[in-house]
């Protein structure tokens, strides 16, 4: 019993641990600026390097207790979790910055001045060299995301081409015209619904949508039709076998001739109705006496208001 309880406890811990990791798995490093000369200012009015974290999921993610670092020493697999944690900046609890809404961002200032606020990191970034930046889960072991930022010119940023989509690759923004540094906002500004625009262009009168969608509807319902055709056949066979057994018929041909198991629902409905009437004593003749004699109406509590009033409390 004890062993079983312990096993269940371990399983629960693993599930909870995995679940909390699953939540933070939706985070990614989205954009980084290592040299901020005239770009966005922090809450002290200063231009500082920054790291943007993006919540790729469709629910809130609390980044509290996760770790941010630029120290590659944490990659050493022989380090204990506590040693690794000591080398990283832990994102404090209880701050609005730590709770990131769905598909939204939060910005951390890499100014090595953590006392200026919870979103000020304890390390800074070197604009002349490449910077490795990593985001670790609260256990200090699970790497959520990491990126190596190349040396950047002032006011340029290294950003994912599309928010949160690593497969689309990274680009340096602010270097050429037409690319903008976008702290705390989408890397690509969506000024229209791509799907709707595409449908407007390619399918202006909706024929393609009608054909595609009706095909899907028919496909889904044909699947259902096929499934129930099969289950129906199986069900009919089982019913026939049961009916044959009940009537003591062994010959399949004879059963087919007598339509055993093929009785319609109406047949069973009539039996059920008869049973229902019998069990509930429902009959056509009412036990009521018809008379022309005057009958005295007895007192009925239904017509008396006294019963609906509150009683006077007893002393």
């Amino acid at each position: 019993m004890r062993k079983r309880s312990f096993g269940l406890f371990v399983l629960l811990v693993l599930i909870v641990g995995d679940f909390s990791y699953c939540q933070t798995k939706g985070l990614c490093i989205n954009e980084v600026m290592t040299k901020n000369a005239s770009n966005v200012i922090d809450d002290y009015g200063l231009h500082q390097p920054w790291i943007e974290i993006f919540n790729t999921s469709f629910s809130n993610i609390d980044i509290k207790s996760c770790f941010l670092t630029n120290n590659k020493a944490v990659l050493n697999p022989h380090l204990a979790a506590t040693q690794r944690m000591a080398m990283m900046y832990m994102i404090p609890k209880g701050d609005v910055y730590s709770n990131i809404p769905p598909r939204q961002f939060t910005l951390f200032w890499a100014d090595a001045m953590p006392k200026r606020g919870n979103n000020h990191l304890d390390f800074s970034l070197d604009s002349n060299h490449s910077n490795w930046i990593a985001l670790y889960d609260a256990n200090g072991v699970t790497l959520i995301d990491s990126v190596t930022v190349p040396p950047l010119k002032a006011d340029c940023s290294f950003a994912l081409r599309k928010d949160g989509i690593k497969s689309q690759g990274w680009e340096i923004k602010g270097l050429k015209t037409g690319t903008y540094v976008t702290p705390n906002t989408n890397n690509v500004t969506l000024d229209s619904n791509v799907k709707i625009t595409k449908f407007k262009e390619k399918d202006p009168i909706g024929i393609s949508m009608a054909i595609t969608a009706m095909s899907v509807v028919f496909f889904a319902l044909i699947l259902l039709y096929s499934a129930f055709k099969v289950t129906g056949k199986i069900g009919e066979n089982v019913l026939r076998k049961n009916a044959m057994k009940a009537r003591g018929i062994t010959d399949k041909e004879m059963a087919k001739e007598k339509l055993v198991g093929h009785e319609s629902g109406e047949y069973y409905a009539a039996i059920a109705m008869a049973l229902h009437e019998y069990q509930n004593n429902i009959h056509d003749v009412e036990e009521t006496l018809l008379t022309i004699q005057r009958t005295k109406r007895n007192y009925s509590p239904w017509s008396s208001k006294i019963y609906t009033l509150r009683h006077v409390p007893k002393r």
Partner: peptide, 23 residues
């Protein structure tokens, strides 16, 4: 529906109304 699965397809056909109106 279960006893006569081909009725499912009638339900599918009536959805033409949706896509006719869409057009």
């Amino acid at each position: 529906l279960i006893s006569n699965p081909k009725l499912i397809l009638v339900g599918a056909a009536a959805q033409f109304g949706i896509f006719g109106a869409y057009i």
